[in-house]
């Protein structure tokens, strides 16, 4: 049997990052403030997670202006989507194995 841990991704081990990725999987794009409200975490906290995901190229960032205020929108990249799917598969396998 394949080792399910191989599928797990180090960056997505963090629950908040996994949640952010899941929102970007379910939506074409999502902006910073909406994400902050949905997750119920602080600006700084969210920004750190977004930086980490951006560094891994799991997400792409689009900066623009909305009503003259800076507005940051995020999208999941193809790479991000693949890693997320693999990570989920890994989680499922892991839980299935343990339940046997």
């Amino acid at each position: 049997m394949k080792n399910p841990f191989e599928n797990l991704d180090k960056v997505l081990e963090h629950s908040a990052r996994l949640q952010i990725m899941s929102v970007l999987m379910a939506n074409d794009s999502f902006d910073f403030n909406a994400l902050k409200e949905l997750m119920g975490i602080t600006d700084g906290n969210l920004a750190t997670h977004m930086k980490a995901l951006e560094r891994e190229k799991y997400i792409s960032v689009i900066k623009s202006f909305k009503d003259r205020k800076p507005n940051t929108t995020y999208k999941a990249t193809d790479r991000g989507r693949q890693v997320f799917k693999k990570h989920l598969e890994g989680l499922e396998q892991l839980i299935k194995q343990q339940k046997k």
């Binding site: 081990e13 629950s15 996994l18 949640q19 899941s22 929102v23 999987m25 379910a26 939506n27 999502f30 949905l38 997750m39 989920l88 989680l91 499922e92 892991l94 839980i95 343990q98």
Partner: peptide, 23 residues
Amino acid sequence: MKELQDYEKDLISIRAIMERSVK
């Protein structure tokens, strides 16, 4: 290393947050 319950919690939490983000 995370515990198994943590992984299960992760799965439940992303289901909930995905739903809340689109619905």
